[in-house]
Write a protein that binds this DNA or RNA. Structure first.
Length: 557
RNA sequence: AACCCCGUGGUGUAAUGGUAGCACAAGUGGUUUUGGUCCACUUAGUCUAGGUUCGAAUCCUGGCGGGGUUGCCA
């Protein structure tokens, strides 16, 4: 009975709250997440998952996971497995409530029979092309099929023979008898069953007729006792049909379909068709390529489930067509990672630095905090030696005004190490900088000077003798335009930078840098992701990211 | 020129007839052993025209704009 007046309720929660209050369906809440196993789950699905599972949980209900597998030609067990894995990874649990629409093929067949017996469906011999002609257009009504008035007995007989496999694909369909003049084209005698002599990933060759989405979905919901059938906006126009089928066969209970807007992200393509094209065309290395907006792609890129869920929560539930800024998603990840990800020193684009007053062969073990945001994560030792690498981007021979890092004659702090001062710049014959000669101040061990003097910059470094070398791709964004989803020639907009392989050098506390991708977050840092990414893996912070940010700012001026 | 849905800062949202608020982004300043984090501040909004009302982002009507719908896909 608690009244949470201050908590704003989105329109779906308002409806559910009202239903529960009114004792509708005994106050039970049962939702479902119903993907078709024809591809991998992407960030757009994450929103639906958060809503479906989230609302069920909030109202003390359950959420089913149901594979909407009514089209055997497009589906595969590979996808079933990945979907389960990804939903679990996000942190949701369907318990015992895992189903397939194909579990209900027998019941659905019975419902179809009932539809025929009630005179509400007929077997139609029109070809696909003819059906299209008869359907009419958006502005003109359709014409009734010449087969529309077959007797119930004949329909029953024909439908039974369809099931037995007496007809080839496309020869006949079972159609609902509704209204060919309905302004909603989906109500103009829609198909209920079609013939498909195809092997189904679960039921094998048992069936050669398969129910259409509109018929199977609402009745599957009813069979499972779903109370609120939440889906995206494109199904809005299907809702009258959803209701019609349930009423027409007299199914109980009658779930309520409610639609919300789907997620769109800037710089990202989201449709399964296009993602499949990226995979099949080898533009990416599979569904879990870290550049993909799939959940497994985000996972490899180092995203946490918490960040994704938080993002979905912030977006809220509305019916407004929207294009969400991926910067918000990145913010959610930084926010999460910042609190818990261990940090490690890293250098990309190494520049050798010789500390002239540090003895050759000596190793100084320095103490480094694992996570400045979380002291409980402890510290580690970092070896300091005469020869180190810093990032090329952290040195400028002719530093402009607001550049705070190393330059000739300047002093900076090596993070967790010493202050160093640049005395000399060594170049090769072509004038490229190949080495820096510096001196360190032994008094500044740990990073602070007893005399109280300050430095403006703190830079990353690794011991040249101890650094672990690896390669990684620098992930920026797969696409280089605002919204490639809207572009016709979207494949040409792939960002070439996303393919660039870079060297990376990290502290010896890491055994190796596994080949993978490096995710770039300006001003926050990079972290490395790979096939077996875990949240315990470190963020390679600062260095290049900050440099790029600075460069970008300069470019603006 | 059909039907349905949706229009609040650049973006995503809150306010359900009573002070237009939050977050991201952008910008400025401060703290800082990550140019990160954190803190403070700034910029910026109810598509439009009428109507109802003491009072409209909210209700009504028209216009304008965006999206969806003509699979034997889901």
């Amino acid at each position: 009975m608690s009244e949470e007046k201050n908590e704003p309720l989105d329109f779906i929660r308002s409806i559910v709250t009202e239903d529960v209050k009114n004792g509708k369906r005994d106050g039970q809440v049962v939702t479902r997440f119903p993907p078709e196993p024809n591809g991998y789950l992407h960030i757009g699905h994450a929103k639906a998952i958060c809503i479906d599972f989230g609302i069920a949980k909030e109202f003390g209900g359950v959420c089913h996971l149901r594979m909407d597998d009514t089209n055997p030609t497009k589906e595969d067990v590979e996808y079933v497995d990945s979907i389960q894995e990804d939903v679990h990874w996000l942190g949701f649990d369907w318990g015992e409530n895992f189903f397939y629409a194909s579990y209900y093929y027998d019941k659905l067949y019975e419902f179809a029979l009932e539809l025929i017996r009630r005179g509400k469906a007929f077997v139609c011999d029109l070809t696909a092309e003819e059906v299209k002609e008869y359907r009419g257009t958006l502005t003109e009504p359709g014409k009734e099929s010449p087969y529309r008035n077959r007797s119930i007995e004949e329909n029953l007989d024909l439908f039974e023979r369809m099931r037995k496999g007496e007809f080839p694909d496309g020869a006949k369909t079972l159609r609902a008898k509704i209204d060919m003049a309905d302004p909603n084209i989906h109500m103009r005698d829609p198909a209920v069953y079609r013939i498909r002599h195809a092997h189904h990933h679960r039921t094998g060759d048992k069936w050669c007729i398969y129910p259409m989405y509109d018929f199977a979905h609402c009745l599957s919901d009813s069979i499972e006792g779903i109370t609120h059938s939440l889906c995206t906006l494109e199904f809005e126009i299907h809702r009258p049909l959803y209701d019609w089928f349930i009423d027409a066969v007299g199914a109980e209970p009658h779930p309520q379909q409610i639609e919300f807007s789907r997620l769109n992200l800037t710089y990202t393509v989201m449709s399964k068709r296009r993602l499949l094209e990226l995979v099949n065309g080898n533009y990416v290395n599979g569904w879990d390529d870290p550049r993909m907006p799939t959940l497994c792609g985000f996972r490899r890129r180092g995203y946490t489930p918490e960040a994704i869920k938080k993002f979905c929560e912030i977006l809220g539930i509305t019916k407004t067509n929207s294009l969400s800024d991926i910067a918000l998603l990145e913010h959610c990840l930084r926010d999460d990672l910042n609190k818990r990800a261990p940090r490690v020193l890293a250098v990309m684009n190494p520049l050798k630095v010789v500390i002239e007053n540090f003895p050759e062969g000596d190793v100084d073990e320095l103490e480094a905090i694992n996570n400045p945001e979380d002291p409980s994560q402890g510290s580690r030792k970092v070896p300091f030696t005469r020869n180190i690498y810093i990032d090329r981007n952290d040195f400028m021979e002719d530093p402009p005004k607001k550049f705070f890092r190393l330059g000739p004659g300047r002093e900076v702090r090596l993070r967790y190490g010493y202050f160093i001062k640049c005395n000399d710049v060594i170049k090769d014959a072509d004038g490229n900088i190949v080495e820096l000669r510096c001196t360190y101040d032994p008094e500044t061990r740990g990073g602070s000077a007893p005399d109280g003097r300050k430095v403006k910059g703190t830079i990353h470094w690794v011991s040249a003798d101890h650094a672990v070398e690896g390669e990684a791709r620098l992930y920026d964004r797969l696409f280089s335009v605002e919204n490639p989803g809207a572009e016709k020639n979207w494949l040409e907009l792939l960002n070439p930078d996303s393919l660039e392989v870079k060297k990376i050098y990290v502290e010896p506390c890491l055994a190796e840098v596994e080949p993978g991708y490096i995710c770039q977050f300006e001003r926050q840092g990079y972290f490395c992701a790979d096939k077996d990414y875990t949240q315990e893996k470190p963020v390679f912070n600062r260095s290049v990211a900050l440099r790029d940010s600075w460069a970008k700012a300069q470019g603006k001026k």
